[in-house]
């Protein structure tokens, strides 16, 4: 299976967007090549701004640019863009509903050897609690490209969460991709896995493993964590009656929590549906090989299989 990092999907898409729309500008904080924004910088040097290692300034410079009609894409490591500059994002970008796109690369454990300080495992939580903010976590390189294109057209603040390491390409150019719409990756009857980012491909692998044991799994890709597709989540939860959430992020406050919020507040969920959550269990990561870390911290197909079996036991 072909593999490519989601950051390159953004990096390539933003160049094409730049050719079509002169209002697109890109800002970086000294991580131009690793965030794949060097392609844009080379093509449009006059529309590329590197503010150095100052993420708080970065967010607000972009805010100012958006107020003059520009469409700024901020390229920075997710931990610093969303963490260090959270209050700037909340008070300046979110509150004023500014058209600023925050592209956080190097999210999750897949950062690998750089270790815990650089592995953003709280960024979905941090961004999704801000009113007006859209949160998109593509499952592969192709979705990252499509998300970049759609966010450029969408008006308002958004966070695009991307990874550093190569990830399997599991969609193709002709697949539908609509912001806010869940996407069925595999149909099944016994349990539903809701996943985002790299965990979508892990969930698909888990479904294959379980198929050998005659367990039929539905895999649903929730690339848009906010606004979340409530209707689809309730529908697929009702269909199988058992749910597993999977994310490369802390289990509290992030994607899984967003799914739980839907399930626990929905009037249409008319039966008990047990949920198991796969994700970081309230701990920090460490240095290691990207996929080695996923295994070490329980974020692979194996753990998803375990979670499915557990949830099936709880299913009434």
């Amino acid at each position: 299976m072909e593999k490519k990092a989601t950051r390159f999907g953004y990096g390539e898409a933003i160049v094409e967007l730049g050719k079509k729309n002169k209002n697109i500008v890109v800002l970086s904080a000294d991580v131009t090549e690793s965030t794949a924004s060097h392609l844009f910088a080379k093509e449009f040097p006059e529309r590329f701004f590197n503010v150095g290692i100052s993420e708080q300034d970065l967010i607000c410079e972009a805010a100012g640019l958006s107020l003059t009609g520009k469409i700024p894409f901020i390229s920075a490591y997710s931990i610093f863009a969303t963490g260090r500059a959270w209050e700037q994002i909340r008070n300046t970008v979110g509150y004023s509903h500014l058209n600023v796109k925050i592209v956080g690369t190097h999210a999750g454990l897949l950062v690998g050897p750089d270790g815990a300080t650089h592995q953003a495992l709280e960024d979905i939580a941090l961004m999704r609690v801000i009113p007006n903010m859209k949160v998109v976590v593509p499952c592969d390189y192709i979705e990252a490209k499509k998300a970049t294109e759609l966010l450029a057209k969408d008006i308002g603040p958004a966070f695009l969460r991307l990874g550093r390491a190569n990830m399997p390409i599991i969609t193709n150019e002709s697949c539908d991709f609509e912001l806010g719409k869940a996407k069925i990756m595999k149909e099944g009857a016994d349990a539903t896995i809701f996943a985002c980012g790299v965990m979508v491909s892990e969930a698909l692998k888990a479904a294959e493993i379980l198929a050998h044991e005659h367990i039929s799994i539905e895999v649903v890709n929730i690339h848009t964590v906010k606004p979340i597709d409530r209707q689809a989540i309730v529908k697929f939860a009702m269909k199988t009656g058992a749910v597993v959430t999977a994310e490369e992020h802390q289990v509290s406050g992030g994607f899984g929590s967003a799914v739980l919020e839907v399930l626990t507040t929905s009037e249409d969920l008319t039966r008990f549906v047990p949920v198991e959550m796969v994700g970081m269990q309230d701990c920090f990561g460490e240095s290691g090989l990207p996929y080695g870390l996923l295994a070490q911290y329980g974020l692979t197909d194996v753990e998803v299989v375990k979670a499915v079996k557990k949830v099936l036991q709880r299913k009434r």
Binding site: Q56, E61, P72
Partner: peptide
């Protein structure tokens, strides 16, 4: 009112971004 302010320390960056935008145009 161009933008929400009040959280101190942020306004110069915002004005700087505006100034960049004016120059681009």
């Amino acid at each position: 009112v161009e933008v929400a302010t009040g959280s101190l320390g942020q306004g110069l960056s915002i004005a700087s971004g505006m100034a960049i935008g004016f120059k681009l145009d």
